[in-house]
Design a protein around this nucleic acid. Structure first.
Lengths: 243, 243
DNA sequence: TCAACTCGGTGAACACTGTTCACCGAGCGC
DNA sequence: GCGCTCGGTGAACAGTGTTCACCGAGTTGA
């Protein structure tokens, strides 16, 4: 089965350990501490050897960010499968709360993935700019939410013309995300107004989490969880989900 | 008048030029390019001399961030004074649009000030965590908005009990900010529900701007300005400002 | 006025960084 | 078994933040 040669296995092992140690350094001492020599020291090799695996430190950090996205997706997915399939409300809460909890527990990783200006997988790669795997989980829940809870057509009127093209593109992304995970939604069930609401929800979710992680609220928030939950409640009720 | 000794003036000049050159390096080549030797080279001195002005590179960057906040505040203020005093709606638009425009034009500075995980002036310094001066402008407009447009008491009910203490504290900050700039508001006119809305607005404003600067929208936004404006419109109408 | 002192600036040094290079030797395909 | 691939090495280079002893101009007090 493992048709890989011995050398291939060793290489895979080493690569895994490199990322693992790099991750540990990031978590414990921040981005600047993720230094080639430090990684090499932990792995038990020398710094130049790392260039057999990555083009540069920047390349290593980029792939590390992908790993982090993947793990976040796995974590959120794990919380998701324990919930009743049809309780979309609970699913939304779980993903949003899980995202916040993860960000607060891993601020360095959050900063690397969601607040790096280098535009690694930036706006150029249109599809799912935030790193494949995490995007999938998030999009899937969002898509399922709307599919299972068709919103009144009326709110489509609020969506300005100039956004229609973009939102239709995003609509397709959502449909693909849901279908990819076994669901079955057609584009028609996802009204433009609803999609607009999803985007707005991402703005608010991200905004709150980033502000909390970076400590940039305009006053001392002694109870951020309440603030977050009240925002979530408002978000969800705006979409018209509370039944 | 200038009671300062000759040496003091020279020192002030040098310090100004240090920050100026550091700023130029940040803008043109990013945070990592703001290196002590590079700054020193531009200024015409040697790197160790910088330690006569700053404790460390980190200290320099922190004060640079303060400068940036100040300049942003000045810029927003300049746009503000050209507007009719009583047109709060236009003022809100101006500040929000100005903030976005500034962030897009100065992504490196935005990242340094609003997305650094080091928590420089972080949650510890309660009052105005985001750097004195910019906070002032933002808070002032926000406070004036609410003061001039008292919102119905009813929405207070939506604010969960656990947040009351925090919001009351923020209420005081807002009142101070407005009064500091010549306005006159009492705490009573600023209902808790309204304050909650202000916080939510900051979450959305920051969320959109950061997502756009960092390219972390879940799809390619070809017309981000429209998206931003539609969010602004929704935000403002929620507060009940559109007359 | 002159000595004493403060303080901005210097060059050398230290330990570190990312990165490149020639080289070596084990694993591999033929 | 020959030759090649490829992971790993140590040395080297330019550059980093930071510390240190030192110097000399500016300031201050007697």
């Amino acid at each position: 089965m493992t048709e890989a040669t011995r050398r291939d296995r060793l290489r895979a092992d080493t690569e895994r350990e490199i990322r693992q140690q790099a991750r540990a350094l990031l978590v414990q001492h921040g981005r600047d501490a993720v230094t080639l020599r430090a990684i090499a020291r932990e792995v038990g090799i020398t710094a130049p050897a790392l260039y057999r695996y990555y083009d540069s430190r920047e390349d290593l950090l980029r792939r590390l960010a992908d790993d982090i996205c993947g793990d976040l997706a796995v974590e959120l997915d794990a919380q998701l499968v324990e919930l009743p399939e049809d309780d979309v409300n609970a699913q939304v809460f779980a993903v949003c709360r899980g995202f916040r909890r993860w960000a607060l527990a891993h601020p360095q990783e959050f900063a690397l993935v969601f607040a790096s200006a280098d535009g690694a997988a930036g706006p150029c790669e249109a599809g799912d700019a935030v790193g494949d795997q995490f995007g999938q989980v998030f999009l899937e829940v969002a898509g399922r939410l709307i599919a299972s809870h068709p919103v009144p057509k009326q709110i489509d009127d609020d969506v300005p013309e100039e956004l229609h093209a973009d939102l239709i593109a995003f609509q397709q992304v959502l449909v693909n995300a849901v279908n990819h995970h076994g669901g079955a939604v057609s584009a028609e069930t996802l009204s433009l107004g609803a999609i607009h609401h999803i985007v707005q929800s991402w703005v608010r979710l991200y905004g709150h989490v980033a502000l909390e992680v970076f400590g940039r609220f305009p006053f001392a928030v002694s109870n951020p969880e309440s603030l977050f939950d009240s925002m979530l409640k408002e978000m969800i009720s705006e979409i018209g989900l509370e039944d």
